[in-house]
Simulated scan of single mutants.
Amino acid sequence: MRSHGSTTWHWDASLSSRIALIICKVLVKPVFSYWPSSDRGLEQMKYLDMWADKLPTPKNLMVEPFLLGGVPCEKITHPRSATGALAGASILYFHGGGFVFCGLATHRALCGLLAAKSGVPVISVRYRQLPEGSIGTSVTDAMSAYTALLESAEDPDKIVVAGDSAGGYLAMKVAEISALRGITRPAAVIGYSPLLNVDLENHDPDYMKRDAYLPMRKVVELKSRWLGGDVIEGEQSPVNADSAAVPPAFLVAAEYELLRPDVEVMTEKLVAARRPVETHIWTGQIHAFPVLGTLVREGRTIVSLTVDFIERTLAASKSGPAQPIDVSSV
């Protein structure tokens, strides 16, 4: 591993991660490339979450379905309660899936791991996706859940918003819109391979071809549907938002994935604006690899680093700026 300012590069990839990379290149990417983007095709992708919902619930966790601001969610808690700076905190998690598929079940393992490591409740949000609504609809649901949590959380000043891929987009939008509306902002934002720019076609096409399973052609095909319908409050792409609106940020990307360029751009912007940011880029991984949770060593490491970052950030909110973590000790 090697640190460059706010960015840490990780060069060690486990065997399980490399196997996942090969499977995605050989099987998943070709399927995604040719899957129809019609309403019927998008509806069929939702069976992934239905299948995942049949898997056993992670051990030693309580999963409680409920409505938050009218949005279906589930609250995942671990018997161990957080102490110190983490006491009273909560994590609002937005799953990824390109605003098309995935849901509470596909991300239950990751949310459970976050709950177990942190000792704080993790609330996973089932926001509307295509073809039910465009990105604007997803943002509306995300804000409805967040504003409702402000009224019900144990400590509204200790709400952390998090998400992977499309969910990372929503986490960033919640932070931005909270600032625009003048309401309590999240204490921190966590983005695992976050979608920060909807104009991905502007990046180097040769680099974009190297993503292990996200086909650029399909992303461009979906863009018009992402942006159709409801207006998106604030900036269309979070990377263009005012850096002052971004709370302390923890960002993760794989070395070769579509979303890494904008993770680096966002990191540079936050550093220039003197905003706290910690970024990790990992070789030999697939897009949003922390979602694999305990299946890969790197997923467990990233969750540990995430919890450490949240704890330091919450402690710093009382005593001053957060200090960089020595990742070699994790």
Rank of each mutant, 00 (worst) to 15 (best):
P247Y: 12
P247M: 08
A249G: 09
V252A: 13
A254W: 09
E255K: 09
E255M: 14
E255C: 15
Y256D: 15
E257L: 12
L258Q: 03
R260P: 13
D262C: 09
V265N: 14
M266W: 08
T267Q: 12
T267I: 13
E268D: 15
E268A: 15
E268Y: 09
K269Q: 10
K269M: 07
K269C: 12
L270P: 02
V271W: 04
V271I: 09
V271M: 10
A272E: 12
A272H: 10
A273H: 02
A273G: 01
R275A: 00
P276G: 00
P276Q: 04
P276L: 04
V277R: 04
E278Q: 11
T279Q: 05
H280Q: 11
I281A: 07
I281T: 05
W282V: 09
W282E: 10
G284D: 01
I286E: 12
F289C: 09
F289H: 00
F289V: 03
F289G: 02
P290C: 02
G293C: 06
T294I: 13
T294V: 13
L295F: 10
R297I: 01
R300Q: 06
T301V: 11
I302G: 01
I302T: 15
S304A: 13
S304M: 10
L305D: 06
L305R: 15
L305Q: 13
T306V: 08
T306S: 02
V307F: 04
D308Q: 10
I310F: 00
I310D: 00
R312T: 04
R312W: 06
R312Q: 02
L314V: 06
L314K: 03
A315F: 12
A315N: 04
A316I: 05
A316K: 03
S317F: 10
K318F: 05
S319I: 01
S319M: 02
G320P: 07
G320L: 03
P321A: 06
A322I: 11
Q323L: 02
